[in-house]
Computed example of a mutant assay.
Amino acid sequence: MKEAILTDLNGKYIEPTLVADSVTGVFPIRQAVQHAAKSVAATQDQGVAAGAAAVPTEAAVGETLAGQLSEAILAGQQPEGPSRTAPQAGSVAQAVAQTGAVAPPAPAQEIIGYIVAVTVPEGLYQPRWDFKSEAWTEGLSQAEIDKLREPQPKQPSQVELLEQALKDVKQQAAQQQSVLDSVGKELAQAKLELITMKGGKSA
């Protein structure tokens, strides 16, 4: 087994998958169309409305032939050839061919992606399969590549984060101490003024 690549309809890289070693090339991924049955039914209805014959199933053809056989017996006619027996699978197919009816078509399918069994070259940021050149190409623009190449900011280590947190705590403590010192000075000044006022009154 070897690695192949799943792509979308535009050839854009989705994810890797595994294929046999002998597999090489590009292969479509098909999926049954959900509305295929409805489309066939709608087409048949339109055909009937326009005077076209509806597509008969084998059961419907069998019932028709059996009815014709019964009518012939009741009318005193002797059925000829294969009609003397109940219609079998072969006779049903033959009847379909004789009446010109068309067998129901196989369910429609649509392409939903591709399997690319070609090695992706090194150095591609966003691989994309080019169906014209049949080769892997770069899916990003030059501007997007330049942005990816820009140096990313260095993430601080755990030790650096702890050191910064310690600095922040010390700074907060220093600010609080400054506030306390300022309040202490204000209190001392107020006491001095109070003592002076008392001394003046006593004199």
Rank of each mutant, 00 (worst) to 15 (best):
L187M: 09
A135D: 14
A101E: 03
P28N: 07
Q171N: 11
Q175I: 15
F131P: 09
I115V: 15
V179P: 00
Q142R: 11
V120I: 14
L74V: 08
T7E: 02
N10D: 10
I14V: 13
P28T: 06
R128L: 10
L140C: 04
A97L: 07
Q68F: 02
D146V: 11
A86K: 01
H35C: 08
P105I: 04
V96I: 12
W129A: 12
Q78T: 12
A101I: 01
G200N: 10
I5E: 03
D130P: 14
D181K: 10
T17Q: 08
S157H: 03
S133L: 12
S83E: 10
K167V: 12
I14K: 15
A49D: 13
K38G: 04
E110S: 05
P127M: 15
E71S: 07
E122K: 13
S141T: 15
G200L: 13
L69I: 00
Q176D: 14
P56Q: 03
Q175S: 09
L69A: 11
E63T: 03
A53N: 07
E80F: 04
V179I: 12
F27V: 06
G90Q: 06
N10M: 03
Y125W: 15
I73Q: 02
A49G: 07
I111L: 01
T64V: 04
I29N: 05
G47D: 09
P104V: 02
L192A: 14
E58T: 03
T17H: 01
A50M: 06
L161W: 08
I29H: 06
V33N: 09
Q34S: 14
V23R: 07
Y13F: 15
L9K: 11
Q68I: 07
A37W: 05
K147C: 02
V159C: 01
Y125I: 11
V118E: 12
Q77C: 00
A106V: 08
Q176I: 08
R30H: 04
T64K: 03
I29M: 11
A188H: 03
V26G: 05
G200I: 13
P153T: 05
P153L: 09
T17E: 03
D8H: 04
V116L: 03
E186R: 07
E122N: 10
K191I: 12
S133N: 08
V169F: 08
P104G: 04
A60D: 06
A203N: 04
A32S: 07
A165E: 15
D181G: 02
A143P: 05
R30G: 05
Y114W: 15
G81P: 00
T196K: 09
P79M: 03
T43L: 05
V102R: 01
V61C: 05
Y114C: 00
Q94L: 05
L180R: 08
S182C: 02
T7G: 01
G199E: 06
K191M: 09
Q109D: 02
A103R: 13
F27W: 12
Q155K: 15
A93C: 00
L194W: 08
K191G: 02
Q31K: 14
K147W: 02
A188M: 08
A95N: 04
A101T: 02
Y125E: 12
Q31P: 00
Q94W: 00
A103K: 12
R149M: 10
A32P: 00
P121T: 11
T85W: 02
S22M: 06
A101Y: 07
A60T: 04
V61K: 00
K147Q: 14
V118P: 01
A42Q: 08
T137E: 09
E80V: 14
A89N: 04
I115L: 13
